[in-house]
Design a protein around this nucleic acid. Structure first.
Lengths: 217, 217
DNA sequence: GGCTAAGATATTGTTCAACAATTCTCAATA
DNA sequence: TATTGAGAATTGTTGAACAATATCTTAGCC
């Protein structure tokens, strides 16, 4: 057995959550899910713990686990942390190794290729990799892990975005501009551009969240 | 019951670890600990997961959980992340609320009072609160939580420090200087001073770790 | 004597079923 | 309408059993 049962169950649940089959706020009943997936409650709870660690679900004592609801305050906070970590990466870019700096450019390349092919889903993935690569310039395993968790949380909020195309399109050119600034050693300008970049992206998401909020009332 | 059994067990273990009763590297036997604390193996494992999430213990497959050993690479990385988060706090100081800024000064006051009374244990606590307050200037719950985890990891490394007095004494004046720079709105100078401050502290800890390494061989 | 390998022992990994504790539901009541 | 309380549903905890893995022991060999 290469993967434990709990891990396989967690994989199934992760797919369902990220695929939208289990929308945010859904309560994950131990008995129903256990019967559905053919595993004991105990194993299911073990799977829950893995997902809790990824902050895809939250656990409330005596009430069970729920698919994480990422609200406007969460998104705002996530972008605050991203700004701190990605700016730290940019400032460390001068002393970063070649492999780390090339990963930044490579992510931009991939995003542009995907855009040319019309695969906006893949553009989104490459965009996340781009920002992950920025933070990774610090060369810190802990920052890398933190970025992964933040991105996983953010993916939940992206369910509210109506169109991946309209959201990502304007940022393609800015990603390229940022990468070029870094290659040219213009770290100060890169950092200030990155700051306004993140502010703009945050505003777009908050706008989409407010719209969805309006629909539900 | 306000807290779950697993949470209470985790609290007990956390105290023992931070108090030195369970030194780094100790293996936590499920059967022995379960008998000792009067809980089932299953509940104990649940408590382990909470501590794993706090990175106070590590889990090795089929070998059990061990009290985390924080080595030089870990300490270096922890200081990298601290630099990123605390500098982000300093740069956000201008827009931070009054309560957050006063917390910084308050922590320095407490550290100086404790030093005057010769309570170097408390000086250490106040110092941690000072740096926590710096990062908290960002106003980000996630950054606050991250700092708490980093500090918990760092406390494990502090077990290697021979004298709290000699370690903390030289930083008292620098804490005050930093707080003053912030009060005066000299954010740029505060940030560069903080950077060298953290580098110096890191070097002190690494030196102590190397010494301890020398003893054990 | 020191080393290797096979077997014995101990420990963790996983699953299950039962019971305890807590929360939720919903009808009865004021 | 708001409240209360009994009953139902759900989660929390436990103990046991078995499987998988690691560690220790010991016999055999050089």
């Amino acid at each position: 057995m290469a993967l434990s049962t709990a891990q396989r169950v967690a994989d199934v649940l992760r797919d369902r959550i990220e695929g939208g089959g289990l929308p945010p706020g859904t309560r994950l009943s131990e008995e129903a899910l256990g019967r559905d997936l053919g595993v004991s409650r105990n194993t299911l709870r073990e799977a829950f713990r893995l997902l809790i660690h990824e902050s895809l679900v939250v656990h409330r004592l005596n009430r069970g686990v729920f698919v994480r609801v990422v609200d406007a305050a969460d998104v705002t906070d996530i972008y605050r942390v991203r700004a701190a970590l990605e700016c730290a990466g940019v400032r460390a870019a001068a002393g970063a190794g070649r492999a780390l700096r090339e990963a930044v450019t490579a992510a931009v390349d991939e995003a542009e290729r995907a855009a040319a092919g019309g695969d906006w889903q893949e553009v989104g993935s490459a965009d996340l990799r781009f920002h992950r690569a920025l933070a990774a310039l610090s060369g810190s395993p802990r920052i890398d892990a933190a970025m992964d968790r933040l991105m996983a949380e953010l993916r939940l909020a992206f369910h509210a975005m109506p169109s991946a195309h309209r959201f990502h399109e304007p940022f393609l050119a800015r990603n390229r501009a940022l990468a070029t600034l870094l290659e040219d050693g213009e770290y100060g300008r890169a950092e200030s551009e990155l700051t306004t970049y993140l502010d703009d992206a945050l505003e777009l998401i908050l706008g989409a969240l407010r719209e969805r909020e309006g629909e539900n009332s």
